[in-house]
Amino acid sequence: MADLRKAFSKIYDQYVEKIYRFIFLKVNSQEVAQDLTSETFLRTWKKFSEGKGNPIENPQAFLYQTARNLVIDYYREKGKTQTVSVELTPIIDPGENLEKKAMLRSDLETIKVALAKLKENYQNIIIWHYLDDLPISEVAKLLGRTEETTRVLLHRALNSLRKKINQSASGTA
């Protein structure tokens, strides 16, 4: 058990920021993001510790899938759409310090708002590839698509995002 705990501790340290950000960008609330992130890791730890000698094969995929399911459940339970409150929510995690708050500018806010307006698949592919630095092969695994299809999807996602930002800049959004 001590070895398992040690191994999970490493997984936690490696992914906690990414999973938190992944959720935060979708729920736009520090409290909800914290709740859903801890629930994601708690479920993963249960699965991980039950597996004993044969724990989760791909912890990253499991974590993202669990996080996605929890976000979907959250919106289903609340009867909300993902874009409702995004404009009202500050881009930064309120837990971050004031200097960092000052660093973030309104154009990042625009990007975040536009990102939240994209289809879920487009949001995920952009977050995974550009924010979490996952290579196309990894993103393809997470999406359950071929690398070729993933590249096309990424291209479309980026175009869609750019369109939304430009629309917002010209005031037609």
């Binding site: 501790s9 936690y12 340290d13 920021e17 890791f41 730890w45 881009i91 837990g95 990102l115």
Partner: peptide
Amino acid sequence: GKLRELRQIKPNKDWVLLTKSQIL
């Protein structure tokens, strides 16, 4: 480039440590 700047979104360090100790 701007998308990468969104990496500044990070959880509170105290919360990260507390959650880890609670789960484990």
